[in-house]
Amino acid sequence: MTMQRIKPHLPWITLLVLTAVVGVVDPNFLRPANLLSLAGDIVPLFIMALGLTFAIYIGGIDLSVQSMANMITVIASIYLASLGAWVAVLCIAAGFGLGMLSGFLTTRLFVPSFISTLAVGGVCFSVAQWLSGNRALNMDAEQRNATFGWMIGHTGIVPNELFLAAALLALCLFIERRTVLGRVLKAVGAGEPAAKASGINVGRYKMLAFAISGALAAIAGLLFSVKLSGGAPTIANGFLLPAIVAVLVGGTPLTGGVGGVLNTLIGTLIVAVIRASMLYLGIEATQQQMLFGLVLIAAIALTIDRSKLRTVK
């Protein structure tokens, strides 16, 4: 077995080993109820990472996902009262539209995606501050329960968030495996000039990839604000790093082309286990950012396809 052949299997092996190690240290960790509640807690992050996968899959990046989620928590908190369930449509449309804008800037105006999404993130932050007046907002608890209570309840011992996550995963998997869009995104990730040369309208599909990323970041923000019953312009800060880590640890490299949404599922679970294990092993939440930064570097170094980078800038 060469490294080349083991590589695609590394993510789930890592997940199993980590889970086993934590399980040995604390057998309580492996109780189904504990695992399910852990999984339920990570769902907003998973949804965000799911969207981010599309941006990374084509060799780009979306640094606006965190600001997007921040803005959506504010929008959801404000307009729940007047729009009811329709606020979900507003949130997703806003995410889709702004993602589309990032995609437009990247594909049509040749602004590298890390700058275009950073800029769109700045716009999101301004909108969030403007709408909220820079305060933390609360949702009306009764109305939240009536409209979105189904998102955060339990069915048996299974948190309802997991059903939402499963539905979105299935949708993304369908897009990736069974649609023209999915095939084109793979072609773009594998080699953009070749995809273009074979007559594909690459720009339009790349824009859609960024739009999906924005829309899913919006759903993540919506779910997060429903969970917390409120919103604020910086409430989701701290999501960006673990979301990028989840995608890359799962095995979708920064250079795109391989991996996909199932990998992100595994990557998110790895993040969840690392987080939980650090608490079990007595490492506090404040110390985790440094560790995740190092994990990120290791994950990129292991997965990146250097043959695609003529010069590394």
Partner: peptide
């Protein structure tokens, strides 16, 4: 050394 594009290498080091 690790041949990681600078935007991602520096973003990660910023988090560190």
């Amino acid at each position: 050394r690790l041949q990681i594009p600078s935007f991602m290498a520096s973003l990660a080091m910023g988090f560190v």
